[in-house]
Each structure stands twice: as structure tokens, then as C-alpha cells.
């Protein structure tokens, strides 16, 4: 029990963010028309590409002699960027088509 309270106290800021963000996420897309499901999913897909920030932190913290960590980190940065750039560009292409009318 003490350990749980300790964990909560240590990470209270982040736990607050997590809980509030859950509600924000639900609120934000509360009333989305079916037409926009695909672009919305694709946009959300690009946003979780923020995981690339973690990959960059891995690289920044790794020793220049630790080749395995650097190799894996490099691949992680590459894949994460692919997720971000590809995600945003493909979403933009979908939405561009909605705009063209008239």
C-alpha cells in the first residue's frame, strides 16, 4: 500500500496529465461525422508519432561507443519520423480532396 502511495506521490504530475488527457481525448472527438473517421484516424496516427521524441532522447543519451544502442536508436528515429511525416502528409492529401469542391 505504501509503495502505491509513494509511486503516486513521485509521479503525481504525470498521473494528473494522464487522467485529464483521457477525458480531453474523449471530449475532443465526441461528435465527429462518419465522413471524417478516416482522416481523423490518420491524423491521430500521425500524432502518436510523437514517440519519435523518445527515440531522439535515446540517441542523445547514448554513449558514442555503444553501437547496438546507436543502431537501434537510429532505426527508431527513422521509423518514428516515417510515422510522423507519412501520417501528416497522407492526412493532408485526404483533406485536400474535401476542400477542392467549389
Amino acid at each position: 500500500m505504501n509503495e502505491i502511495i509513494e509511486f503516486f506521490t513521485q509521479h503525481k504530475d504525470m498521473i494528473f496529465i494522464v487522467v485529464l488527457m483521457v477525458f480531453v481525448g474523449v471530449e475532443v472527438i465526441g461528435k465527429v461525422p462518419a465522413v471524417l473517421h478516416t482522416p481523423l484516424m490518420s491524423g491521430a496516427n500521425a500524432i502518436h508519432g510523437v514517440v519519435v521524441v523518445g527515440a531522439i532522447i535515446v540517441m542523445l543519451n547514448s554513449e558514442p561507443t555503444n553501437y547496438i544502442a546507436m543502431g537501434l536508436g537510429f532505426i527508431a528515429v527513422f521509423l518514428g519520423t516515417l510515422n510522423v511525416v507519412g501520417g501528416f502528409v497522407v492526412t493532408d492529401r485526404m483533406l485536400e480532396m474535401f476542400k477542392k469542391k467549389k
Binding site: 488527457m21 481525448g25 475532443v28 472527438i29 484516424m41 502518436h48 510523437v50
Partner: peptide, 20 residues
Amino acid sequence: YGNQVMLTGGILVGSAGTLL
């Protein structure tokens, strides 16, 4: 990492994605 942007972005997509 105690990295707020990863946390907000990740949870936002996690919850919005589940609802979607």
C-alpha cells in the same frame, strides 16, 4: 522520461482512438 509531450500526445491518441 518524464516527457510531457509524449505523454499528452500518446494518451490523447490512446483515448480518442479508443472512442473512435
